[in-house]
Write a protein that binds this DNA or RNA. Structure first.
Lengths: 161, 161
DNA sequence: ATAGAACCTTACGTAAACGTAAAGTTCTAG
DNA sequence: CTAGAACTTTACGTTTACGTAAGGTTCTAT
């Protein structure tokens, strides 16, 4: 189905926009590629799927501000899934596949819940900022009306609204 | 206009949900109350306005994940405004007030821009998660149809959708 | 006036998330 | 088959954002 191109750590790092150190650190925490058995000292290899996964982790970190510890918790179930990942490709057992899918769903649901919650909070925040901005502009209008624009020498009349 | 209740650092900390250390640290960074001259060794005093301001800082930190350094940059202009804050209460000069308001507006606009940008990014994120979730559920249906639910002993038939 | 709570300053400590250096090994192109 | 680029492990270093302890001071209630 996919051209299982083997990527090296440097390529993955560049594409995702992190350093190789970060990738190794994440592996150390059990967030990445601990699955693929690797002869000691040999280079790490990654797939496109790994790249996507890493990008997801980075987004959970940057957008939701989760600590790596929290991400580990969140992804714990997915770890099992990732471990089974290899099976997916080679294991045509429908029963197994069903179990994998059923294990993945609640994980995505939890992530979605977190994102939605953050969206709500940000909605409130932007609402308050808009109100504040409106108040300030209103106040500016009142004050500007009370004061003939005498002093300001070079403020072109291109003010907003 | 307002009951200028003087709050102490402990009260402020409790109400905002941070420690006193945090408040002192923020002051050290120039984010808070460096303005009010204080006799050396005397207790710090705060107003309701300060509480609101601190809450804003915390939200910028938690919701947008800004570093304190970045917040300092963002609030730099507001610092000047805060310094002038004292003037606001006692200075009835309309010209001064106008300048204060005009200084505050672009700051709020910048914050709003940051929040909106984050909202967009989260919108994309949740969209992708929804798609992913949909795909997984679809796949589950297909697989469930291919497999008569023989084994599962106690999974009540209350599955979603 | 005095006890105790709350605060002050100073300064060293800490956890998370990597950065960076060293010394050796594996890959890959020519 | 060999040079050098990219990788490996190991381990100590660094930054941010506070935590925490010590020793003294200021407030406030009685």
């Amino acid at each position: 189905m996919s051209t299982a191109e083997a990527l090296r750590i440097g390529e993955v790092a560049e594409r995702v926009g992190v350093t190789t150190r970060t990738i190794r650190y994440y592996e150390e925490l059990g967030l990445l590629g601990g699955g693929g058995a690797r002869e000691k000292g040999a280079h790490r290899t990654y797939t496109e799927t790994d790249v996507v996964r890493l990008q997801e982790l980075i987004r959970l970190r940057d957008l939701l501000g989760l600590t790596l510890e929290e991400i580990v918790q969140l992804a714990e179930a997915e770890e099992a899934r990732a471990a089974l990942r290899g099976l997916w490709e080679e294991n045509p057992s429908a029963a197994e596949r069903l179990r994998i899918v059923e294990a993945a769903i609640p994980l995505v649901e939890r992530q979605l819940a977190l994102v939605r919650h953050r969206q709500q909070t940000l909605e409130e925040f932007s609402g308050e900022l808009e109100t504040k901005l409106g108040t300030l502009k209103q106040r500016r209008r009142e004050l500007a009306r009370a004061i003939p624009p005498e002093s300001a020498p070079a403020v072109r009349p291109g003010q907003d609204r």
